[in-house]
Structures are given as structure tokens and as C-alpha cells.
Design a protein around this nucleic acid. Structure first.
Lengths: 137, 137
DNA sequence: TTAGGTGCAAAACCTTTGCCATCCC
DNA sequence: GGGATGGCAAAGGTTTTGCACCTAA
């Protein structure tokens, strides 16, 4: 894979945060460094980087993908209110794929586990009646 | 929730199959019963039925959702080649949400576990060189 | 009677793609 | 030089929505 200013900035933007940004959020972040970059380039590179194993894609609700700079297996929590995705510090069950493969005959490559609920920020806003600051963000 | 011919046909179409159909597949199926139904009505009712807890939505890659008539907690396998979603007969870990909730402070409501790999049909087609009959279906 | 549902078509939304210029190796 | 990459804009596919007309309760 060839290098380019744009590609490096996109990779750095995703790796430099723990917030699992959407393509649009990556676009906004990278534009602070390279104002002339185009959204198409961001999508093209996110795709290339995911296919190269440099990033992980997290498919989300409403056809919105998020990207994760940590490519090691780990679990996620998604807030039903604001849509944010947070890493969960739960040990990954490495033997699960093999056990289920053996029993079902499916060729299992990996698994993803996602918890759903309400994050602490949104819980607080519900209690004090504050409007949600980051709807679907 | 009010009844209508259309809504009942949509619910029956999803409940009457184990193949986790997309909105478009539901549309095709329901049109055999109600030829004049519109795609907008299918989407509207799928959304209403999911919100009412009558169906489960499975968010997928490329912004394509699938629907599941079984609302009890269970796990899925998604084929990376044809995109099909299959139920996995693995016991659900009922205590997981509570344990992780207690440790992380997140208000966890549920979790979803998805296995990825190649289904038996696509494995066979790879071996014998047959073209895939159901790409991304 | 009337709140809720339908059909239709247009719009919104996220993402991909074609084309040509530019850049990296 | 030549293939990979970028910018731009148009197209693509899925889902939502506005509006006028119906329909179930």
C-alpha cells in the first residue's frame, strides 16, 4: 500500500481517538489538518485501511458505520440514546469460535459482541431533564 | 396498535420464515398476498413492529437491515460471502449483562453476539468453483 | 367520528464510483 | 513512466417523509 498525506492523516485521526468515529467525524477531524481533502477520499481510504487490516469497521444502526483504530478483538457498548460506541473491558472468549464451529459445522472466523443500553452521560441527562447534547452522534 | 391487512401480512411474512429477510425481501413476499402494497408501508410497519417489540432488527453491513421474527434472545451467524444470517444454537449467557453492568457502571439492557465466517453453502461453492448463487442476498 | 394507516413520489441519507489531474515509487 | 491516489461531482442503494386519501375502532 502506497503512502499519501491524506491516508496517513485518516489513519492517525481514527487511531488518535477512542471514540469510534463515523466517516463524517473522521472527515471533520482530518479537514483541520488538510482543509482541501474530499469526503470521497475519506471513504475510499477508510475502506482500503479496513481491508488492509489497519482499522476495524463497526456496522451500526441506520446504515452508519464507525471505525475503530484498535484492531485487537474486544467488545463494544452502544448507547441507545446518543449512539456513541464505547469499548468494554470484558475479557474476550478466545475459545468460543472454535467450540461453536465444532458443534455447528459453520466455518467461524470471528465473533463480535455488542452491549446495548444507556451510557452514563445520557442517564444523567434523563435524571436532570437536560436535553441530549449529542443525539445520534 | 391498530390492525391492518398490510401490517398483519408483514408480520406474518417475517414470522413465517427463519431466513431473516431484508425489507426488500419482505416487500417481495408480501406483494404475493397484497400486490398493491407500497415499499414505504413495508418500511413503516417494520419500524413500528420493531418498536412494539413484535420483531427484532438486525443491523447489517452496507446499511442493510434484516428482520427476525423470533424476539427471544439468541445468537446469529453472518456469512461473509452471501450475507445470509443464520440462527446459532448456542445457549445465551443470561448473566453476562448483569456482570458487565456491575463492573462498568453502564446501564446494559441486552447484548447481541454475531459470528462471522463462511456458511456451508458458500464453502461448497468455493470447493467446486461454482459461482455464488446468492451474492449479498 | 377520527386517530391512525396507506400509496405514491420525492427527499434524505450514507456510501460508492467515474473521470481526469496529480503524486509517489 | 506508470500505476496508485486525490478531488469533484454524479450516481447508487436503502430508508424516511409529506401529503391526500382511506379505514378500522
Amino acid at each position: 500500500m502506497r503512502h499519501s498525506r491524506q491516508r496517513e492523516a485518516i489513519l492517525a485521526a481514527v487511531r488518535g481517538t477512542t471514540c469510534h468515529p463515523t466517516a463524517d467525524a473522521v472527515y471533520a477531524e482530518v479537514r483541520t489538518k488538510i482543509p482541501g481533502i474530499s469526503l470521497g477520499t475519506v471513504y475510499r481510504n477508510l475502506r482500503v485501511l479496513v481491508e488492509a487490516g489497519e482499522l476495524l469497521a463497526i456496522e451500526g444502526a441506520g446504515g452508519l458505520s464507525r471505525y475503530d483504530g484498535c484492531t485487537e478483538s474486544h467488545y463494544h457498548f452502544r448507547c441507545d440514546v446518543c449512539g456513541r460506541v464505547i469499548d468494554v473491558d470484558e475479557p474476550v472468549d478466545d475459545g468460543l469460535d472454535g467450540r461453536v464451529s465444532a458443534r455447528t459445522g459453520l466455518a467461524i472466523r470471528c465473533h463480535s459482541l455488542e452491549f446495548r443500553g444507556v451510557c452514563s452521560g445520557c442517564q444523567a441527562q434523563r435524571l436532570d431533564g437536560t436535553a441530549n447534547e449529542h443525539p445520534r452522534a
